[in-house]
Write a protein that binds this DNA or RNA. Sequence first.
DNA 1: AAATTATTCTGTAATTTATACGCAATGAAG
DNA 2: CTTCATTGCGTATAAATTACAGAATAATTT
Lengths: 259, 259
Amino acid sequence: MKTEKDKVDAIKNGEKHFLHHLSIDCVLFGYHEHQLKVLLLQWKHSGKWSLPGGFIKLDETLEESAKRILKERTGLDDIFLQQFQSFGDPKRSHRSKQDIETLAIVSGSLIDETHWILKRTVSIGYYAVTEYSKVTPRPDPLSEICEWWDIDELPQLVFDHNIIVTEALKALRLQIYHQPIGYNLLPEKFTLPEIHALYETILGKELDRRNFAKKLISLGIIKKLDEMRSIGAHRSPFLYKFDKRKYDKALKEGIALAF
Amino acid sequence: MKTEKDKVDAIKNGEKHFLHHLSIDCVLFGYHEHQLKVLLLQWKHSGKWSLPGGFIKLDETLEESAKRILKERTGLDDIFLQQFQSFGDPKRSHRSKQDIETLAIVSGSLIDETHWILKRTVSIGYYAVTEYSKVTPRPDPLSEICEWWDIDELPQLVFDHNIIVTEALKALRLQIYHQPIGYNLLPEKFTLPEIHALYETILGKELDRRNFAKKLISLGIIKKLDEMRSIGAHRSPFLYKFDKRKYDKALKEGIALAF
DNA sequence: AAATTATTCTGTAATTTATACGCAATGAAG
DNA sequence: CTTCATTGCGTATAAATTACAGAATAATTT
């Protein structure tokens, strides 16, 4: 585990450890009670909101980099990450004078216009989906707050981060039609209503529960167990689990869902 | 138009003009006589084959950069470009001693291990599709030959370029199910057999011509004209053209094709 | 001028898939 | 033992996809 000092130090001496002109931005979708949320950070002093992001170490792959960044904010290992687009407008990462001052104060170093962190930066976008409740959000050294925001009540974000979120959501919704989603997002054993709610939340629309179940079962990616879950004052739903072999096959070869 | 000298000079002095650690690689698919081809370059001396690629200027967008690179190789403006993935393995762009020597000879400059062009490079992949016959391939200063290769008879390529082609084809085939393709790829007026062959070629499989036509017409993105084309010793097919308004709408909003 | 050949155009029947929805079954609470 | 909210099962209908047959046409050949 890194100390806070180490990470602030990274800004000062990052020149030697990170790829210049490149960054990673992560859109982490959190799923909870029929609501889709996004993890955001609030910068110190300016109070501006941003996506969790960071720089790429000289010897790590893009995916390793994204994983590391997300782990620092959430504590989670093994998130299913998906690269979806790179953002490279020459002016996208322009920082205001105030933001530069903040960087200088927080890192305790001189930041003039030649500083590596102010160079034009192309950002590689990754998205991931997680169970909201699994995460304990942790701000980074440059931020005051790290918390979930409802997908349709986002504040204005820094740089082009609002666009990045929009594109990530588009990519996620396109993906859900061509690959199964849910493994690592649901408990090992789950009920039909649970996976049904997950899909409805991500797609942002209603899906007939009976037809939905029929389709997933007929594709063979989930299968019924002989157990039930007790959910209080109502009929107990059966438990299901993913057929990992068929799930992985569907991941690799793609499926054609039509909801 | 740049002179050859300018471009070789770019290697020597590119440090000041290009973003370090970043490059663009383009997979240009050429469509001709039921064959899908890819434009490749053969490097001088080593004889290795690669995709057309290049570096990003300090003040241009990623798309402008890709457009410029493709224009230099093909003469074509206005190609429909699609960013599809970034490739960032730390070892992906390793060059052999021989290749470094060639770079030094061709550019007439000293290239030691600190030279910017040898740094770890993340490449942003773009693909495009064009009519094979519209293109006059032109090698770049580092290459001997620039020519089309059949998609299923590609040689071994440098770096991870074989993977890049595979991923580009996957992305193109996924795209064709969700967006119309054909504008800028077919003459303004075309026949059903022509557009049918285009789709079969890109997807690499047979599509029933009657059902195919029914679908495109019912979606409204092509419409029948009152003219015919004479094709020699056979029945003359009717001409069609794209309904640009509906085509653009489909591009923007997406469609769901199922062939 | 009639038959031949290769190709395009139109239509329809059979099948599969998707959609809509009614109702019985269940577990706990009153 | 009735009520309530919820799950599970099944079926009728609509829509989309697939498969395929046969007529029409423009030269070329006989």
